[in-house]
Amino acid sequence: MSYAESNAVFGTESSTTDGHADAPAAFPRWLLWAVWAALAVPSYFIGMYALRYLYTGPEGVEALNSVYEMLNMTSFNDFVAEQLPKFKEHRTLLYFHAAGMGTALAVGAFQFVPALRLRWFRVHQSIGVVYMAAALIGSFAGGVFAVVLPAEPGMAAVVAIVGVATTTFCFTAMGLLRLLQGDFTHHGEWMIRSFSQTLSGTTLRIMIIGMDYAGLPWHENYMIALWMCWVPNMVVAEVIIQYRRARRNGEPFLGPSPRAAGVA
């Protein structure tokens, strides 16, 4: 892919080449980097922390107790104790899920660094292969895990986990399909959707901490977080995709396009 093609794919051009008006002004670069860092930094450490299961085994879940105690979140100690026997019973699923989603969460944000895409495209491709393989394996294992190892809050929790696992798997698979078809524009859009669901691993933990400090009992806390960690992410991803389409086509993000206004 050439530099120009990459710009067209990822919406980094300031205007289009087919006579359309200039695209709406982009957000300030400092703001984009601040948002990226706010997502990428915790995601990297959460993803790397999840990989501990590969060398600690199921007993790695007990490490969460020390983390929760450091954050003064003792209400989750019982939850951690409940998970250990289940993790021991399904070690293989645990390893695949932790390795897959931990890796995807750690590397996913780097796919959205413009310099990586445009100047070191081979690096972008290599990370992309790792991300897609990890997300497909980790999400599939997570969905199966949720069924054979039901979450304590009940069926609604199982549905939530299966839901995010399914969307992660399907969005990533669609991104891979578009890539193989040479449709780089829609590949990029599907990968935005995919990473929005992978980010549920970050938003889940942030929400759990926030709701615990708000005094919400852990069963209610966990149930709400399981749904709110991925459904809003999906909505935000669609807003970002529509914004990028508007910039790429030289149309306003909100309101009718100049062409539509002319027809009216």
Rank of each mutant, 00 (worst) to 15 (best):
L204M: 15
V235S: 07
V231K: 05
A225V: 08
G163L: 03
F169Q: 00
G175W: 04
R178N: 11
A225T: 08
A173G: 09
L226G: 01
I192W: 14
M207H: 06
P232Q: 04
L180A: 13
D212K: 08
R193Y: 11
I209P: 07
F195A: 10
I208W: 06
T166V: 02
L177F: 15
M211L: 10
Y222W: 03
G215V: 07
M223G: 00
G182M: 03
R193L: 12
A165W: 04
G175R: 06
L179N: 07
V231R: 05
W218F: 01
N233K: 05
A237Y: 03
S200R: 11
T202Y: 15
V235L: 06
S194T: 09
I208L: 14
T203A: 13
S196H: 08
S196R: 07
N221K: 05
L216E: 02
M228A: 09
F195H: 13
T167H: 05
Y213M: 13
Q197T: 12
L179K: 08
G163F: 00
W190S: 10
V235D: 07
T168R: 06
A214P: 12
V164Q: 05
I192T: 15
L179F: 03
E238L: 09
V162N: 00
L177R: 15
F169I: 01
G182A: 12
I206P: 11
W230H: 03
R178H: 15
Q181G: 14
A225Y: 02
M228L: 09
T172W: 06
H187D: 04
A173I: 05
L216F: 07
M207Y: 11
V235N: 03
Q197D: 10
L176N: 04
N233C: 01
D212P: 08
M228Y: 07
E189W: 10
M211F: 09
F171D: 11
W227E: 02
E189R: 15
V231M: 08
I208Y: 00
M191P: 13
T202G: 15
M211Y: 09
A225M: 07
I208H: 12
G215L: 06
G215N: 11
H186K: 15
C170F: 12
G188N: 00
S194W: 08
T166Q: 00
S194F: 11
F195R: 13
L199F: 15
R178Y: 15
G163W: 01
T167I: 11
F184N: 01
L216W: 00
G215E: 08
M174S: 14
A214V: 08
Y222C: 01
I192Y: 13
T202K: 14
L216Q: 01
M207S: 04
A225E: 08
A225G: 02
H219Q: 06
P217L: 00
M228G: 06
G210L: 04
M228S: 06
V164H: 07
D183R: 11
E189A: 10
E220N: 05
L180N: 13
